[in-house]
Nucleic acid binder design. Structure first.
Length: 273
DNA sequence: TGTGTCACCTGAGCGC
DNA sequence: TGCGCTCAGGTGACAC
């Protein structure tokens, strides 16, 4: 599932391929992927625009275009944005973009949760998820004191707090479970129950698991590939996610899987208090 | 206002 | 073999 490391890997793989390229034509096979504007306007406004930068904010990919427009892509669960020499014939191809160099950018999305926007830069606030997004955990604006204060102000389960994009940007189910394991914190603990020392451990653990995820070019369980179609390697290094019933890599205790906030959650009952 | 739950969506895996 | 059920999870809408 694309979280911050996966989206960052897609960004890094697409950047050298897209910079300076212009979009010749968009072909839309599933219009509801386009959230703003309508599909017809999206196609018309995108045609002929040149890519100036490829950025990321949380799990959003921000493709900055000439004329002060930004093409915003969210991969959600199974979205893939893949640069290719050919127009994909994949069963789940939802949109494809013909580039001026003869190559294609294919958007494949099995479960069709992915979304796209094309807005002038002064209207990006219309995307609520972008407007309310919390600090980038690998940037300087992620500050321990603010993070601790946010945890202290809520009785919600710490796992649910970390999944909340207004608290920290870019975390999803995989990296939240991994960060909580690394910090030795039980996922059900209320945010306000964490000591400053525990919050500091969690703060560092979040940075660590995300950095490792990026170094390993993302986690591929089934669908995720980068912008060149390559799978990630981080799934081979996970301590808890996807390992319910197996032994803890630290103490050997059987890892427990349960549902928290509607999501599968794996933790070590001995290492995480 | 804060928090929890559910729908959206398709395919894999499992039991019968 | 085929059917039906459950599960996977990011986000917005909704209920309490």
């Amino acid at each position: 599932m694309p979280e911050l490391p996966e989206v960052e890997t897609v960004r890094r793989s697409l950047e050298p391929r897209l910079l300076g390229r212009s979009i010749k034509q968009a072909y839309i096979y599933l219009p509801r992927i386009i959230k703003k504007p309508d599909a017809e306007s999206f196609t018309r406004l995108l045609a002929g625009r040149t890519v100036e930068t490829v950025d990321r904010r949380g799990k959003y990919l921000l493709i900055r275009l000439a004329g002060d427009y930004t093409w915003v892509v969210h991969l959600r669960m199974t979205g893939q944005l893949v640069y290719s020499e050919i127009k994909s014939e994949h069963k789940h191809l939802r949109l494809t973009f013909e580039l001026d160099d003869g190559n294609w950018l294919n958007f494949i999305d099995m479960r069709t949760f992915g979304s796209m926007y094309l807005l002038s830069d002064d209207r990006l606030d219309e995307i609520n998820g972008l407007k309310t997004m919390g600090p980038e955990p690998l940037e300087d604006d992620f500050i321990m004191a603010d993070f601790y204060q946010r945890l202290q102000g809520s009785s919600r389960a710490v796992k649910n707090l970390l999944l909340d994009q207004t608290v920290v940007a870019g975390l999803g189910n995989i990296y939240v479970d991994e960060a909580l394991f690394l910090a030795g914190i039980h996922p059900s603990r209320g945010g306000s129950s964490l000591t400053e020392e525990e919050a500091a451990k969690l703060f560092q653990a979040i940075k660590e698991v995300l950095q490792k995820g990026i170094e390993n070019r993302g986690t591929t369980f089934r669908d995720y590939v980068d912008g060149a179609g390559a799978k990630g390697k981080n799934q081979h290094t996970l301590n808890v996610y996807g390992r319910g019933g197996e032994s803890c890599s630290l103490c050997g205790t059987k890892l427990v899987k349960f549902r928290l906030g509607g999501r599968g959650t794996v933790f070590c009952p001995d290492c995480q208090k």
